[in-house]
Computed example of a mutant assay.
Amino acid sequence: MEPNDTISEAPAPPPTPARPRPRGRTALLIAAAALLGVSGGTAVGYGIQAQRPPTPLPALSQTELAYPAKALPADKTPAPLPASQDRRVRTDGDLRKLLVDRPAGWSDDEEADWLDDGWMTVGSLAREFKNEAHMFEYFIESDVRRIAGAAWRKGEHREAEIRLVQFSSGVDTAAADFADGQRSYMSASENGAGNEGDAVEGSGSGRYYVYGVERKPGYEPFYRARAVMHRGDIMIEINLYDTRPISKKDIRTLAERQLERV
């Protein structure tokens, strides 16, 4: 077949015409019937309702008020909670006093330059993340109030770091959101511990993790454990580092003691 040759095709069937909409008198009859049906149904409904007995309305008065009409006398006013039971009194005070006591055998880490008299700046915390600028903006928008911390050493290689990140009390979920975000990647092996961790008793969603050992030629093995939890407006983070294995008991005990303090 030559390129210029053409192939005859069968003619396409004509399109099916659309059904025309009713016009003229037919349309008027349909509209009138529809209107009559609606009107008739409405009339029947009103007739049935009119034959039913009226439904009584609920009483507007109350038997008694849910609060006293006047203030209680001084001798009947309940005493305020003691400071040991009033959490707001404790968390509004010196946040550093809520840090767990340094265990026996540990000493303060004088080389912890991220601390200044037990306080940590928002900038220092943001610098610990890969995207420093983004995290700094996140902390400001989340209304971080203050950060207290502690750094200890035991022997030549074991180190401990504790941070209490407190958010303004008006932002109810900020501490929980920050803790959830930190736990969200801990099961990954690249940036996290590579496991789901274990629950910290009494913490709700708090968990502690023991990382797998990290080995590099020319370096001692590196072990790490971490706990992430929150209570109220405070997010709690604990890290342990060592060149020797860290047991689950080590990080769990420290996490439980810190949680009790907050």
Score class of each variant (00 low, 15 high):
D5G: 09
E237L: 02
R25W: 12
V38F: 09
K97C: 01
M1E: 08
V213N: 11
I7E: 14
L81D: 03
V200A: 08
Q51Y: 06
G149Y: 09
W119E: 12
A255V: 10
S142Q: 10
L29H: 13
E196N: 06
E110Y: 05
D109A: 12
A31E: 07
I246L: 13
R87D: 04
V38S: 10
K248S: 10
A160E: 05
F167H: 04
D177P: 09
V44H: 03
P13L: 07
L98W: 00
G47P: 00
Y219R: 15
A199M: 13
A104Q: 14
R158D: 08
T42V: 13
P73W: 01
K249T: 11
P15F: 03
P82L: 01
T121G: 15
E110L: 11
R215Y: 04
G206V: 00
K216Y: 01
L36V: 07
L28Y: 07
G123T: 03
T77S: 01
R19V: 04
D94R: 00
R244E: 15
V122L: 09
V165K: 15
R252G: 07
R102A: 10
W119A: 14
D198W: 05
D250T: 05
R153Y: 08
V171H: 15
D75A: 12
P20G: 04
E220D: 13
P53W: 00
T253M: 09
D75P: 00
L254E: 10
L60H: 04
W106N: 11
E156L: 15
K249E: 14
P53V: 03
R252A: 14
P53I: 05
E161W: 01
A227N: 12
A66K: 08
Q85S: 02
F139E: 05
G105S: 10
D117K: 12
A12S: 12
A27W: 03
L259V: 06
D116S: 12
D113A: 01
D198Q: 11
R244H: 14
N195V: 00
K154H: 09
K76P: 01
R25L: 06
L99T: 00
A71C: 03
A133Y: 01
Y46P: 00
T42N: 05
Y241D: 15
P53L: 12
V210N: 00
A126W: 10
S205W: 01
G24W: 05
A193W: 03
D5T: 07
K70Q: 02
A18V: 10
P73F: 02
F139G: 07
A126M: 09
V213A: 15
E220K: 15
P22V: 13
I7Y: 12
A175Q: 09
A227S: 13
R90Q: 06
G170T: 07
D101A: 09
Y219P: 00
G118W: 10
Q182P: 01
A255Q: 13
V89I: 07
P3H: 10
V200P: 01
K154E: 11
D101P: 02
M120F: 02
S61T: 04
P56F: 05
T121Y: 14
D172Q: 11
D101E: 08
M1V: 13
R21S: 13
I162D: 06
E256P: 06
K76Q: 15
Q85N: 02
I140Y: 04
R215N: 08
T121I: 03
I48C: 03
W106E: 07
H157M: 11
Y208S: 12
R87W: 04
G123Q: 12
R96Y: 02
R207L: 04
V200C: 12
P221D: 02
S187L: 04
S187A: 12
L57C: 06
